[in-house]
């Protein structure tokens, strides 16, 4: 447990002290959402209609942007080899790194989303649902992303391969996350969507560390 917390704290302070990571992700997120009114026109009805989906897609892309740093630096400087040799199971090490990644990117994304929701004119109920859906869904993004990040370690053109691998796997959280906001904006309860989104996150929590650890082991061989 101490090793788990230590790894979590180390990754988090690295992400926060380097500063760029979280700021870049948020900056990209805001810019991507702000681009849409230029593309589709500033009519509030149109923006309200596509707002939730836009914000969710932008959040996916922002999360994708930060994935290559999840293991890459540790892979390059040999830290990952030490982690694999340490007494902490690699599955738990992956979990600690994902948790740190989520606190450094997913959580700030969720916290920023209400302000972006104002820009696309969502009503207060939908904003609350959007915040909740991102809070529930972003851990799944970090966890699923860790599998793809581990698989593509050391690949040529890693960024392209990574996005090709991870975007299809991001579709379920996207469907239920954006669906929740849509349902809430239409006046139907968002509960069912949020529950399924929670199930997706829990399934990712249970399965992804194993897959990532397997991928890391074969990368280190």
């Amino acid at each position: 447990m101490a090793a788990f917390l230590g790894l979590f704290r180390r990754d988090l302070s690295l992400a926060l002290r380097q500063g760029g990571d979280t700021g870049l992700v948020i900056g990209f997120f805001v810019l991507a959402v702000v681009l849409f009114p230029f593309g589709v026109g500033p009519e509030p009805e149109v923006l309200r209609r596509i707002g939730a989906g836009t914000i969710w897609v932008a959040a996916l892309l922002a999360a994708l942007l930060s994935l290559d740093r999840l293991f890459e630096a540790d892979y390059q400087d040999g830290e990952l080899d030490l982690l694999a040799l340490s007494s902490l199971p690699l599955e738990l090490a992956v979990l600690a790194k994902c948790a740190a990644h989520w606190v450094a990117t997913g959580l700030p994304l969720a916290l920023t989303s209400p302000f972006l929701a104002l820009l696309v004119d969502l009503d207060p109920g939908a904003i609350a649902t959007l915040f909740a859906s991102l809070l529930i869904g972003t851990p799944a993004l970090s966890l699923i992303g860790s599998v793809a990040a581990a698989l593509s370690l050391g690949a040529r053109r890693q960024g392209v391969v990574l996005s090709l691998l991870v975007l299809p796997l991001y579709i379920p959280p996207l469907i239920f996350g954006a669906g929740a906001v849509e349902a809430s904006a239409a006046g139907n309860g968002a509960r069912a969507y949020l529950l399924i989104l929670g199930a997706v996150t829990l399934a990712a929590l249970a399965l992804c560390p194993w897959a990532s650890a397997a991928a890391l082991r074969q990368a280190l061989e």
Binding site: V147, L151, S152, G154, A155, R156, R157, Q158, V160, V161, L164, L165, A211, A214, A215, Q218, A219, E221
Partner: peptide, 18 residues
């Protein structure tokens, strides 16, 4: 894409298998 993304083909095969 993943199977062909590595200089070492066996590494690509194992990553793609996962």
């Amino acid at each position: 894409a993943l199977a062909n993304a590595f200089d070492d083909p066996s590494r690509g095969g194992r990553a793609a298998a996962v």
